[in-house]
């Protein structure tokens, strides 16, 4: 479709049609938000889908792979599981495997993690003075894996102009396009 045609479409719309387009655009945005929030409720995790950003779990996970997380409080953390955790002072959550775990009688648990591709455990990555992770640090446990799909978000984050261009194109297309 050529640009002049696009705007012809807009010109031919009357007020009602224009409002309808804006509303359907709003529907798309709000249903995306609902799906995300719904996933948060179902999985119990504050971030049910994460993109792997580093190579510390290679060759299992590469940069740009997608992980599906759950975080049910009744499921205990165990050694060998892949957890996604947040460390104070770091914005980006880390995806690593549990190496050691100690659980007290009252249920409090502390554990140490390590990346498969790293030669040492994660004590150097934790906040200064922090020796163990607890359940509060955990964002989720990895349950499902999908390769490559996250590459799109990595591209968008690394080239913000590309992100805004894509968003603008999509927005204009939805507003202008008539079915």
């Amino acid at each position: 479709m050529e640009v002049s045609n696009l705007f012809d479409d807009v010109k031919r719309m009357n007020k009602r049609q224009f409002i309808f387009q804006v509303l359907s655009f709003g529907m798309i945005v709000s249903s995306a938000l609902m799906i995300w929030k719904g996933l948060m409720v179902v999985t119990g995790s504050e971030s049910p889908i994460v993109v792997v950003l580093s190579g510390s779990m290679e060759p299992a996970f590469h940069r740009g792979d997608l992980l599906f997380l759950t975080n049910y409080p009744e499921e205990p953390v165990r050694v060998g599981e892949i957890v996604v955790f947040k460390v104070e002072g770091r914005d980006i959550p880390i995806v690593h495997r549990v190496l050691k775990l100690h659980e007290k009688k009252n249920g409090t648990v502390k554990f140490l993690t390590k990346g498969d591709n790293n030669s040492v455990d994660d004590r150097g990555l934790y906040a200064p003075g922090q020796l163990w992770l607890t359940k509060d640090d955990v964002v989720g446990r990895a349950r499902g894996f999908l390769p490559y799909v996250g590459m799109v978000t990595i591209l968008m984050n690394e080239y913000p102009k590309f992100k805004y261009a894509v968003l603008a194109c999509l927005g204009i297309y939805v507003l202008v396009h008539r079915e």
């Binding site: 060998g80 050691k100 775990l101 659980e103 009688k105």
Partner: peptide, 22 residues
Amino acid sequence: KQLFLYLTAEYKTENNELNQVV
């Protein structure tokens, strides 16, 4: 694609009800 094998020692102590060490 890959297996990640690990050998775990599991035991109980006075301090902790459950200990797991890879």
